[in-house]
């Protein structure tokens, strides 16, 4: 199992919860008030509610259904229906290994998360969903390169550096294969580019999406 980039760090503020899907794994990814990020099986052990609909209080994630509170270590420590009760240690969702590095949140559902080493000083541009297969998306990116093919930093997950013509510093694209025909593309850019350049990159990746999705639709 590879370590997947599931989101940009900047998009998960303290006290926020998001859902991430990696193949058959459905996850709740959340950040505590103090900034600790956790990635869990997206299912409350009590009544099966998706924890990604939950809410963060302090250093706990609470389930939206009955408000059961779970600490960053995953243990349930408060059941509102029985405020005096100490819940058993067995009440705990499955925890996945999560690491923040290079402006990305990296998760591995089966072993320790090992992020791909990326250039220093990356700053986030945006994430977007592309509904197509990986090869088609990479091909669409390739056509936008002024000087030939994309340079792969890593194949699984697919991470490529990407020259951008007018922008002197290249962008990095980390592709999360959420489902077979559903990619989530996280774009970052090196060094201190201007806000205008970031907007240009954002437009460029949108146009890549249009190209890739229409190529995919034509093929089917």
């Amino acid at each position: 199992m590879t370590t997947q980039p599931v989101g940009l760090s900047i998009d998960l503020a303290p006290q926020q919860v998001m859902r991430a899907i990696d193949g058959q794994y459905d996850m709740a990814v959340w950040r505590s008030t103090s900034g600790v990020v956790s990635a869990w099986e997206n299912r409350c052990p009590h009544r099966g509610m998706r924890l990604s609909y939950g809410f963060v209080r302090g250093e706990s994630l609470a389930c939206a259904y009955h408000g059961w509170h779970y600490s960053c270590e995953g243990y349930c420590h408060y059941i509102p229906a029985h405020p005096e009760l100490t819940p058993p240690k067995t009440v705990r969702p499955v925890l996945y290994s999560v690491v923040e590095q290079s402006g990305l949140i990296w998760v591995n559902t089966e072993q320790d998360a090992m992020p791909v080493a990326l250039p220093d000083d990356l700053q986030p541009v945006r994430s977007l969903v592309i509904e197509c297969d990986l090869a088609t998306a990479v091909q669409a990116l390739d056509t936008r390169q002024p000087h030939g093919g994309v340079e792969s930093l890593s194949d699984t997950p697919k991470i490529i550096t990407f020259e951008t013509g007018g922008i002197s510093q290249g962008a990095v694209v980390a592709i999360q294969q959420s489902q077979p025909n559903r990619l989530i593309v996280h774009m970052l850019v090196q060094s201190a580019v201007t806000a205008k350049d970031k907007i240009a990159l954002s437009r460029l990746i949108e146009s890549v999406r249009r190209q890739a999705e229409s190529a995919c639709n034509e093929a089917t």
């Binding site: 009590h46 998706r50 009955h66 819940p87």
Partner: peptide, 20 residues
């Protein structure tokens, strides 16, 4: 619509109950 699995488990193994 957000409980997993969509079918109801009848044994307490998959979903842990409390007194309530």
């Amino acid at each position: 619509e957000n409980q997993i699995p969509r079918k109801l488990p009848l044994d307490p193994g998959l979903e842990i109950p409390t007194r309530a």
